[in-house]
Nucleic acid binder design. Structure first.
Lengths: 127, 127
DNA sequence: ACAGTGTACTATGTGTAGTAGTACACTTGT
DNA sequence: ACAAGTGTACTACTACACATAGTACACTGT
């Protein structure tokens, strides 16, 4: 399904969340598709089932998946999902911090815009 | 000099580092200006001297300040400082993560560009 | 000599992430 | 009815980073 970077400083649960969001939003996983069970994905990734369960819990709270007791976990319909203003605000704060880092490095505004635009365009499938 | 947000999830040492970079890069603190001693700043911010010392240690490693034993810590000349490619790469990764978050929220590329541009332009003094 | 400086070290407490193990209610297929 | 698989909810333990507390040392300027 995907792989983890155990050398990363990022939390394993966060990596699972990001990879799942990628698959869901990009359309690899369609609405109502079933995703691996907590125990199954934990087995694939060689991590503890509790860690996967934590990731699923957060993904469900954010509306990306939904669970049916005893049956499994499924992909939600992200198309009809309104943009969560709280998450958007958090994302904007992250971007502001990132841009500040470029500023602190002494990079010019024009150069910074080039760098950012390059990264945006890396997503050929976007929009 | 500046204030800390004790309710923030950001580490105190990281907040000190960011605030110092802001003052140095924006030109409030000029090269060879002396910055408060470890004990003095710790007293102002009501944190432990070790925490300030850690922040200063990192700032020196990144080239923003330099220390003279027994005399104090001073602002380095960031103008003549070459852009550290390792730090630049880290910043780019950070930006990529942030932009992905916008993508996961289902925001269009055009909308994302507007949001980013607005944040960049918040820095009226840049370049 | 003295006060102030950065630096280094140990010890302690706290919070978070992750692992390990167990238990329970539910659904499906037999 | 039964077994297997599902999500969920606990507790306990380890590991790590952060911050605090206290002490000590070498250096500088007066």
């Amino acid at each position: 399904m995907f792989e983890l970077d155990m050398k990363s400083r990022k939390a394993i649960s966060d990596q699972i969340i990001e990879n799942m969001k990628e698959l869901i939003v990009s359309g690899v996983l369609k609405p109502d598709d079933r995703i691996p069970s907590v125990r199954e994905l934990a087995g694939q990734l060689l991590v503890n089932p509790n860690t996967v369960a934590k990731a699923y819990r957060i993904l469900e709270a954010q509306g990306y998946i939904f669970t049916v007791k005893g049956r499994g976990t499924f992909v939600a319909d992200t198309q009809s999902m309104p943009v969560d203003s709280r998450e958007l605000k958090e994302a904007e704060t992250h971007i502001r911090d990132s841009i500040n880092k470029l500023y602190y490095l002494g990079i010019s505004k024009e150069r910074a815009k080039e760098i950012i635009d390059k990264i945006v365009e890396e997503r050929g499938d976007w929009k």
